[in-house]
Design a protein around this nucleic acid. Structure first.
Lengths: 219, 219, 219, 219
DNA sequence: AATGAATGAGCTTTCATTCAT
DNA sequence: CATGAATGAAAGCTCATTCAT
């Protein structure tokens, strides 16, 4: 999930000066879980603290208030996604490969960390304005932007149809991805939590559909 | 305190017996606006009452509680959408025509009632479970179901590619529609509120993309 | 205490449109008591509500928050004092009479409403800045100003010594009044709550001292 | 983390054994400032630590708790005042001289340490009971007592009028002193922080007024 | 001696809901 | 029908105090 960092020269001192305190991490992770479970307003600080196994007040030691905590949750999740998008973008392959890669990435992460993905994708656009002001809108735009660039270059190389505005195409792809996920999560595709196989099958269909949509038929 | 009002000239009362009271409508409409503006939890009864220009308590005269009010909002909006989908579904034309019709319908409604559309589409999956139990989940499933049927018949008639599960395809189409809308609303496609022309342009691109995706590659 | 309003033509309807709600008054009065008893920070909203015999939330129905409540307490008390000062100022008598009248007024009110006086006099200058910004500083200045005017006119008429700046003299008089009261309240003059006789005796001494100070000896 | 400091050249340490640690002083001084600025309840331990430039926990190393810290602040300030009063009391001169001396002392100290004086004089009577139990009430009474003694001896020597109870007179003098100071501090006498000259001018007027008040009219 | 993370009781504030008029 | 005052549970936030290092 996190890009592989270059190994340290010296292995000692895992805890360095600017390292993030362990409990801060615990709180952040707990927040993701609780948030995913209960949504923005259902997510009580007390719940987060309990889930993280820390005292109530410690949350306020690390985060100014509830909004800042949840902003941090978003920021972190988006950072992960955006880094992944960038890595895919800068990697090898055709535009089609990369778009397929994006779909795969999201659905693969979903397999291992469904709650995180739910938070990331489902809650983005429905958070209160106050929060959005913090970080989300730009980050959302950034994610769309990366995808749009990808589409644009595919168009320039004649790989993708050129009668679509890149941003529009990017948004549509992201939306298809999100709602498919939602359908999976909500048990609309098939009741109950989806199996890995099922996720893969859906992934293939999604990729096929998306690519066909972006290439368009010659007719 | 309240001055006695002059009695009505005509005995309309009997006729209005089962008509929806004007103030109930006002409350419902206000709820849509406030809900769209602030989201589920940010939407306070006091806000709705103020926006509707009625007294606080009247909301509780017409609705048992907040959840019932918001359920009603959803129910109303979904009913409109589902009726439209059914009408399109049952109307004439190929599956492609109908899918294009759905996209057109949603984006056209958006032109005249953007907030309502936002509520309808954006808030569906993020409302508390309590609410979903009420009406939303089924309705959401219903909408997806209609679209899926449409896809299925298209496949049976050889019009659409048959390597996609209808529900998956339906979800993807709905998602593409929703996120494109979101992009428009959030000013990601172009800053500022979109013009009608712009919405139409986006609509054409969306339809082209979606149909290509559902038909498969020309190869 | 409140200036007598012109009697209404019709005696009915004691509760008119702009009348202050009874419970609001109850809360305000309770606030004075609790505030006097426990000071600014010791004064909990819960205490005030209980003392007023109303529900917790009602306090917030009438006052935006704690600060606004306490500001109102101040404003009310000061209004009473300032009105009394003005009445004395505009009444008949020499400057000496009026100054004696002011001392008498304060100590007399103290006899009947000791807590109110304590709040008014003791807490004025020690309230957090936030509160002062609200109302107190101007009002305090106003009270001093009225006294200073009184002194000035006494000087102009040759009744009081003219080698004192009116504001300085006014502040000193007010201070002597306050601290004497404090001494009485804190049992420094004599242990236990002071009797009415005692208050009168102290009053006489105070007046004698203050007037002598403001007249100065010719020597 | 803290770099090792060079050892002292001279073995002063033994001598300093019972000396007050430098950081303790820093905390105490910081407490005076913060306390003066924000009042008892507005004064947070964190603020004091920050103002003193020491770690949070160190405050608790030197003081058992917040109350003890603030008691120490009071105790220190009052000790200074009471010592000065005693020195003046036991020194040479008439009662009038001594009373003038007290006024001068307070206003002179105010010139060099305005915040300390404010704390000392302004906060005395408004601190929570808990604190008073510690030290303040007695000390306050002590200060008044010394002044009262001074007045009594002046009366016995026929220097001051004898129709005043010494405690009452003492309280009034202290009050006049305090409120004049307050007026100065709050910019009621003249806007902005007072100049030294201004303080001196006010002092002369105050002394003249107080002495006239205590001597009574020659009649 | 010195540090600052960690704790949790206590208070303020919000807001859905009720109810008397 | 209509009103809005009244209620109180629930949640956010603060800050004195403790403790491991």
């Amino acid at each position: 999930m996190t890009a592989p960092r270059p190994p340290r020269a010296t292995a000692r001192r895992a805890v360095d000066a600017d390292a993030e305190p362990e409990k801060r991490r615990a709180i952040l992770h707990a927040a993701v879980r609780v948030f995913a479970e209960k949504g923005y307003h259902g997510c009580r600080i007390a719940d987060v603290a309990r889930a993280a196994g820390v005292a109530y007040g410690l949350v306020y030691h690390y985060f100014r208030n509830k909004d800042e905590l949840l902003e941090s949750v978003f920021a972190e999740q988006w950072t992960i996604l955006i880094n992944a998008l960038k890595a895919i973008d800068e990697g090898p392959g055709t535009a089609s490969d990369k778009i397929a890669g994006v779909c795969s990435f999201v659905l693969d992460v979903y397999k291992t960390a469904p709650t995180a993905v739910r938070v990331l994708i489902l809650e983005v656009t429905r958070t209160p304005n106050a929060l959005r002001a913090g970080s989300t809108p730009q980050t959302f735009a950034t994610a769309v932007g990366i995808l749009a660039d990808l589409v644009r270059r595919g168009q320039e190389r004649g790989e993708l149809r050129s009668d679509l505005e890149p941003v529009v195409a990017a948004a549509a792809v992201l939306g298809a991805l999100e709602m498919t996920l939602t359908g999976l999560v909500m048990g609309i595709v098939r009741p109950g939590p989806p199996s890995e196989d099922e996720i893969d099958r859906v992934k293939d269909q999604l990729v096929a559909m998306v690519l066909a949509g972006l290439r368009g038929q010659a007719r």
